Each structure stands twice: as structure tokens, then as C-alpha cells.
Amino acid sequence: MAVNKVREIMTAAPVAVGPQTPVVDVARLMRDQSIGVVLVAEDETLRGLVTDRDLVVRVVCEGGNIEERSVAEACSEDLVSLSPDDDISRAVELMREHAVRRLPVVEDGRPVGIVSLGDLAVERDTDSALADISATEPNE
């Protein structure tokens, strides 16, 4: 049976933090849970998304005391999101159109998942190098 809906491939129950969470705590969370993205939410409303790359480019490279920086300073706030009931083709279309690798999945205004380029590769192009890499356990 073919997978057609985002809910069938998304990572459910994504890790989320509040906007005032220190970036150091977010980086440790990413390390400890072997993830590369964390949602930023306030009162269960999605406010942003931060990747490990965002932490490096928007915080570490700027210098200064990173202990004093919050995730609100590092996250992308202009988000494109999906519904869990959207077709997978919609996810592909949005990733292409907005040149992003991850999309938050939102239901009734609350973040319920994340779909990544790797998730799509595993589902749609099982013989690709990206699918092989995405299907393996992360390096610790």
C-alpha cells in the first residue's frame, strides 16, 4: 500500500523548547537525542524552528558569550508548514519552492511533527544515497 499522507512519514512528537531557552541547552538536547532540529513553541503555538546549522551560523560565528543567548536569536521564524493530512507531494512541492530541508507539521495550530528531506527520500527513492544515509542510525 502506497504512503500518501505526511502523517505516515513524519517524525511525530517533535522536540520543542520555549523561545527563551538558552542555545547551549538546545545544542545539548540535540546532541543527547541525536537530532538536528528543534521546534520553538510558546503556549503550544509554533514560533520557529532551529537547526544545528542555525546554531553555528547565527550564534557561534557571531562570537560573544553564547551562554547568554536564547534560541529565539537563532531560530527561523518565517516558517512554511504542513498539515498531517497533506499529501506527500505537497511536502516535496513546498521544500522545492522554499529551498528547505525540513517542514514542521501543524494541526489545530499545534506542532505535531516534522517531515524532512530524508523522510521523503526513504519513502520515495529507496535506492538513493540520501535514503540509505537517512535510514541509518546517527553517529554519536
Rank of each mutant, 00 (worst) to 15 (best):
S81T: 15
E107N: 08
A12D: 10
M10H: 02
Q20C: 11
R110E: 14
M1A: 14
A13K: 15
E93G: 12
S76C: 10
S134Q: 08
L130P: 01
G63I: 02
D52M: 06
L55A: 03
D127K: 13
A131Q: 04
M1D: 13
E73K: 10
S134C: 12
A135N: 11
T45E: 15
R69E: 07
L82I: 12
L103Q: 07
C75F: 02
L55G: 01
A2D: 15
M1H: 13
R102H: 02
L46D: 06
A131K: 01
A99H: 15
L55N: 07
E8W: 01
C61K: 11
E107V: 09
A16G: 06
V40E: 03
S116V: 03
D125Y: 10
L94F: 06
V38H: 00
A16E: 08
G113I: 01
S70V: 01
R124G: 09
A131G: 03
S89T: 14
V71R: 07
R53Q: 06
T136N: 13
V115H: 01
L29D: 04
V6F: 02
D85E: 13
S83E: 09
T11G: 02
A27N: 04
K5E: 08
E140A: 14
N139C: 14
I35D: 05
L130H: 08
T21E: 05
D32S: 11
E68F: 01
V106A: 13
V105K: 04
D32Q: 12
V56K: 02
G18F: 09
